[in-house]
Simulated scan of single mutants.
Amino acid sequence: MSFTSFARPLAAVVLGLCAAQPAWAAYPERPIKYVLSSGAGSAPDTLMRMVLQEVGQRMGATFVVENRSGAAGLLAMQAIANAEPDGYTVGHGNTQTLGISPSLSPQSATAAQRVDLIVQVGYTANLLSVRPGLPVDSVQSLIDYAKAHPGKLVYASAGNGTSGHVGAELFREMSGIEIVHAPYRSAPAGVNDVMAGHVDMVFDNMAGSLPFAKEGKLKALAVTSARRSPLIPELPTVSEAGVKGFEVTAWSGVIAPKGVPADRIEAINRAVNAVLKEPRIIQGMRDLGYEVAGGTSQSFTDMVLRERAKWAGVIKSSGASID
């Protein structure tokens, strides 16, 4: 057989493989499921539906949001971790599921180890608010009042082990005060009781508390982020108002089961970062109380590991636990 006669069928095979490659590598070819640990209509749900609609347009795909709330986000995390690692099931990771819960239960720790982080979407400060009738008007006067009445002030949270709970415990430790925890079944229930005067204070997200503070139903003292919030720039941070170094933010991002091909992780990361630069998305997020994040998978991973270590220390020293 001549070299030419041998080369022709070989070339045909190579060309056939090359022609088949784009069809095999095309992504996405079908809708992508997005598993969310928050209920329909919640701030995270509204945020991600807004972002994912634009991401889907850039990727030529449809994102289908599956709301799977319950067990402090564990149900959603397990659904993501157990999914086929093909890029067609991704989901939501946040302060609770990636930062706090891994130090509270073995199941949460296992789930967090079985996901990869794609991109941080955004973050929001919490608002430190007190009941209108409490005779304080600043963080320092709150601390002074608490020290004068040890164990008398009661703070609400959305439940044991939530960010509102461990954030308040961090505040308690750093300010040297004694306050009592009152866990509720949800954040709105706790906020309602602060407004009604049944409990004294609460650390809650901006979306949940800021409207009530602007109406005078809550007395807002400070934001918990490192910098003042553009949503209420006249309000100081907790750090500048008396507890130096205090910082708590609620952050979230896109995650996937371990093993998704790197090119598919990169495709989602690239599309999300592009969307987060759009002015109307930036404004839409701010309207919900969020600031844009973005960045690489590695920067998201590094941030989560720092946060996890921070909350592990708070949980250990405070004895915080889940229900």
Rank of each mutant, 00 (worst) to 15 (best):
Ile179Met: 05
Gly73Cys: 02
Met1Arg: 13
Lys214Ile: 04
Asn67Met: 06
Gly122Tyr: 10
Ala250Trp: 15
Gly39Ser: 13
Leu36Tyr: 06
Ala76Leu: 02
Ile32Thr: 01
Ala182Thr: 10
Ile100His: 05
Leu15Gly: 13
Leu104Ser: 07
Thr224Glu: 09
Val35Lys: 00
Gly56Glu: 14
Ala26Phe: 07
Val65Lys: 02
Leu235Arg: 12
Pro188Glu: 05
Val202Lys: 03
Gly39Arg: 03
Glu234Leu: 02
Lys214Gln: 12
Thr46Cys: 00
Ser129Phe: 09
Gln96Lys: 13
Asp116Leu: 02
Leu210Gln: 13
Thr110Lys: 09
Val191Asp: 02
Met1Asp: 09
Met59Asp: 04
Leu170Arg: 09
Ser317Met: 04
Gly313His: 07
Ala148Leu: 02
Lys152Met: 08
Ala40Tyr: 08
Asp137Leu: 04
Ala125Glu: 15
Ala220Glu: 00
Ala256Ser: 10
Gly16Ile: 08
Pro22Met: 04
Leu47Val: 10
Pro31Gln: 08
Val166Ile: 14
Val248Lys: 12
Val223Asn: 13
Ile179Val: 12
Ile32Tyr: 05
Asn192Leu: 03
Asp287Gln: 13
Gln298Ser: 15
Gly294Glu: 08
Gln96Val: 12
Pro28Met: 07
Ala156Gln: 10
Leu36Met: 13
Val272Ile: 14
Leu47Met: 14
Gly41Gln: 09
Asp302Tyr: 03
Val238His: 06
His149Phe: 06
Ala168Ser: 12
Glu173Thr: 15
Gly151Arg: 09
Ser138Asn: 10
Phe63His: 05
Asp323Ile: 03
Gln113Arg: 15
Phe3Leu: 10
Ala207Trp: 13
Ala19Val: 12
Val243Tyr: 02
Pro106Trp: 03
Ala109Phe: 11
Gly41Asn: 04
Glu66Trp: 05
Ala213Ser: 07
Leu134Trp: 08
Lys33Gln: 15
Pro230Arg: 03
Phe212Glu: 02
Val166Thr: 15
Pro28Asp: 11
Gly289Asp: 04
Met285Lys: 14
Ser321Gln: 12
Ala241Pro: 05
Asn160Val: 13
Glu29Arg: 08
Gly87Trp: 00
Arg114Thr: 05
Thr89Lys: 09
Gln21Glu: 02
Glu54Trp: 03
Ser229Ala: 03
Val13Met: 14
Met50Pro: 05
Pro188Ser: 11
Pro9Ala: 13
Ile281Phe: 05
Ala76Trp: 03
Ser186Gln: 07
Ala320Trp: 04
Arg30Ile: 11
Asp287Val: 06
His149Leu: 15
Ala156Ile: 01
Val14Trp: 11
Phe6Thr: 03
Glu266Tyr: 09
